[in-house]
């Protein structure tokens, strides 16, 4: 069975929010839209977004890491948001594992959002139905799109290619290889939700220089006259 998902590489994510607004623009005019905004030009502007980029600080100065952390629906393999839905509006597609909401069935009871430990669902306060990342279902299965573009908007936008997209059940897919080789992990594994989206951790490249690498025979300083003879007496001048 196919399970489509995103793999997010925290090693290169710079927190630019490209995935946030590209998602918004694709989806607001698409199948999942509109994604409304409240107080768009006033105090406390707020709106429906499927993807948010957050920032965490790890450690204390000067040993601080700043972690940019994008998060959208993780398309759990065992999605707790689905069984709680009283209407069946929330469902997981059997063919590709994408978790979706059918807006025509949703009654906006928000119960599914309580049942998502990741805070990945956002109600559309104007349409009054629950929304969330669709994994850009209307792109990834649109065969009219050229193959290159049959990917989520956020993935195509991401300037650092920190967002990989593919089938995590196919052991040879780019995402599975990345998870395997780069220590990909799931969020809050303690709940047994088995998120399909994975995160790749930071890696650090260090350089070790040995003392002997600093002094070498070809040191260019040896090609200069480092001392100049200005006529003063030396051992050479003493003859026995």
């Amino acid at each position: 069975m196919t399970q489509l998902a995103l793999v997010i590489d925290l090693n290169v994510c710079v927190g630019c929010h490209a995935c946030v607004t590209s998602c918004k623009q694709w989806n607001t005019s698409g199948w999942a839209g509109p994604l409304v905004d409240k107080n768009p030009y006033d105090a406390e502007p707020t709106g429906t977004f499927f993807n948010r980029v957050q920032t965490f600080e790890v450690g204390t100065f000067p040993l601080t890491e700043t972690v940019h952390f994008p998060k959208s629906c993780l398309h759990c393999e065992d999605p707790p948001c689905v069984p709680v839905c009283p209407t069946g509006a929330s469902y997981k597609r059997p063919d590709n594992g994408v978790v979706l909401v059918d807006y025509d069935k949703c009654i906006g009871c928000k119960y599914c959002s309580w049942a998502c430990p990741y805070g990945a669902r956002e109600i559309d306060e104007q349409q009054r139905v629950m929304k969330k990342c669709t994994l850009c279902i209307d792109r990834i299965i649109d065969l009219a799109l050229p193959e290159r573009e049959r990917k989520p908007a956020c993935v195509l936008a991401c300037p650092t290619s920190a967002r990989l997209f593919g089938d995590v059940h196919d052991p040879n897919s780019e995402v599975s290889v990345a998870i395997r080789e780069r220590g990909g992990y799931q969020l809050m594994p303690e709940w047994g939700t088995r998120p399909s989206n994975h995160y790749l951790p930071r890696r650090r490249t260090a350089l070790h220089i040995n003392e002997d690498e600093l002094v070498r025979a070809d040191n260019p300083l040896r090609r200069e006259d480092l001392t100049t003879y200005t006529g003063e007496e030396a051992l050479d001048d003493v003859a026995w």
């Binding site: 630019c16 929010h17 490209a18 946030v20 607004t21 590209s22 918004k24 623009q25 694709w26 005019s29 290159r148 908007a153 195509l156 936008a157 991401c158 300037p159 290619s161």
Partner: peptide, 20 residues
């Protein structure tokens, strides 16, 4: 929808938060 032009030498198809 506004997307990056994949053939463009500068952004090679990607786009940023502002561009989007």
């Amino acid at each position: 929808y506004i997307e990056g032009n994949p053939d463009h030498p500068l952004n090679q198809g990607v786009i940023c938060a502002k561009g989007s």
